[in-house]
Design a protein around this nucleic acid. Structure first.
Length: 426
RNA sequence: GUGGCCGUAGCUCACCGGGUAGAGCACCGGAUUGUGACUCCGGAGGUAGCGGGUUCAAGACCCGUCGGCCACCCCA
């Protein structure tokens, strides 16, 4: 019988890697809490309509990338392809937006795409949203927080910030019409994908990777010429906050985003170190979304970062934490010694809860147990044999620095171990 | 959804249309019967992704399929 496999693009995270995940998740969570964000834990499955109404009916995400199905009641539901929609839904449903608030969430997202580097079908994001402030200081806080995060993670030199304003809904609609009208006159010069986007999502043509298309865009109407006064002021204020905070950025007038709900500010942190999937974190403002999803009109702004991509960044930048070796590896010889060791180790764990203590299971010759002790990377080996049991003692052998082993009375083990570890760790 | 490259031991990879498919690392045992690392000796581990075809002969060539990687697309 063929062994079953995980679904394509949905990967197991193995222990070594899980350490890296914990490291990253802990750093991000600590920082968000420091800025006063509260965690929200959200369902992985939501009504399909939540996503089609927020992300946009004709976006690729909704049209061909969602895992949608009917439950036994016949209701259409979907695995969430992103986090903002669910967060907004929860904020409305639980009336979190009665007052302004800062929220964050994390977890797996699902999109049916062809897997490649930095892109899988189940991927993980941490996102944060601010509700209730129309002012650009909210946009600035998020971006400044992120700049700090990259410094904390040691990847600040490898990412750069691009920002843009896509204006109000009305400004964007006017611009879209002008852009489409221009591009339709040059339809034949457009690449195939952009011709398709002309009908579905014309603004996305702006960040096409096709050089001919980009050349054509040089003479196209510019988004910034269509911006409304309020959006321009908002954008100028944001830039000034960033300047003051010392956050450097480039204004990319062709930066749009794939999701329909954005207005005014959009931003992306990008890198050239991850191949084709260079966006590590992205976000923007969505002042109409809460109302669109049935809540009282409430401005919002937020971001999401891709954890798989950030882990790749940490690896590239040499910022992953070292594997955790045990502090102590326990070797025993004979059944009496094993009995004595089990009892003694539980006392030690009571007295020193922070220690990582690994006991050899399944017996084996003393020699092979010692080999395992060495391979484990432990700082100290604790050795119990007949002699030690008879004497009520234990042998402590340093494994890393070539120092001599010592024998201790069992009763003093718990209090002596910390200084021995200190002394012999490399 | 489209295209390119790739599937041989747990891992990294060799091989050559013709003998029983190899190496390094890892693993197990021993040299050292209570002491790891360095060294030496031995061992286990493979239906060559799967299915079909060509051939006297296929792991190798062809087709299909599944999987992986990369790019397009999409986006975190």
């Amino acid at each position: 019988m063929d062994a079953l496999r995980s679904i394509r693009g949905m990967n197991d995270i193995l222990p070594t890697e899980a350490n890296h995940w914990q490291f990253l998740e802990n750093r991000v969570a600590e920082l968000l809490e420091r800025y006063g964000y509260g965690e929200l834990r959200l369902p992985l499955v939501e009504p399909t309509a939540l996503f089609s109404r927020s992300i946009g009916e004709v976006t690729d995400i909704v049209e061909k990338e969602m895992y949608s199905f009917e439950d036994r009641n016949g209701d259409s539901m979907s695995l969430r392809p992103e986090g903002t929609a669910g967060c907004v839904r929860a904020a409305i449903q639980n009336n979190l937006i009665a007052n302004p608030c800062r929220l964050w969430y994390s977890g797996p997202m699902f999109r049916y795409e062809r897997p490649q580097k930095g892109r899988q079908r189940q991927f993980h994001q941490i996102g944060a949203e601010i509700f209730g402030y129309a002012t650009p200081d909210a946009d600035a806080e998020l971006i400044i927080l992120l700049a700090r995060l990259w410094r904390v993670l040691g990847i600040a030199d490898a990412v750069s910030l691009e920002i843009n304003s896509i204006g109000s809904l009305e400004a964007r609609a006017a611009y879209r019409a002008a852009l489409v009208s221009y591009l339709e006159q040059h339809r034949d010069a457009l690449d195939e994908d952009s011709q398709r986007r002309l009908l579905t999502n014309p603004l996305r043509i702006l960040d096409s990777k096709n050089p001919d298309t980009q050349a054509l865009l040089n003479d196209a109407p510019a988004l910034e010429d269509y911006l409304d006064e309020e959006s321009m002021e908002h954008f100028a204020a944001l830039r000034s906050y960033l300047d003051t905070a010392g956050v450097s950025y480039t204004v990319n007038p062709r930066l749009v985003r794939g999701l329909d709900y954005y207005n005014k500010t959009v931003f992306e942190w990008v890198t050239d170190k991850l191949g084709a999937q260079g966006t590590v974190c992205a976000g923007g403002r969505y002042d109409g979304l809460v109302q669109q999803l049935g809540g009282r009109a409430t401005p919002g702004v937020g971001f999401a970062m891709g954890l798989e991509r950030l882990l790749l960044m940490l690896e590239v930048c040499g910022q992953l934490p070292e594997a955790k070796a045990p502090d102590i590896f326990v070797v025993t010889s004979g059944p009496e010694a094993q009995q004595a060791a089990i009892a003694a180790l539980e006392h030690l764990r009571d007295a020193q809860p922070a220690l990582r203590i690994v006991q050899q299971l399944g017996g084996g010759s003393f020699r092979s147990q010692m080999k395992k002790a060495d391979r484990s990377g432990a700082t100290l080996a604790l050795l119990w044999g007949e002699d030690e049991v008879a004497a009520g003692e234990v042998t402590v052998k340093p494994l890393r620095d070539g120092q001599e082993q010592v024998r201790l009375p069992l009763v003093s083990l718990a209090q002596t171990i910390p200084s021995l570890l200190q002394q012999h760790s490399h």
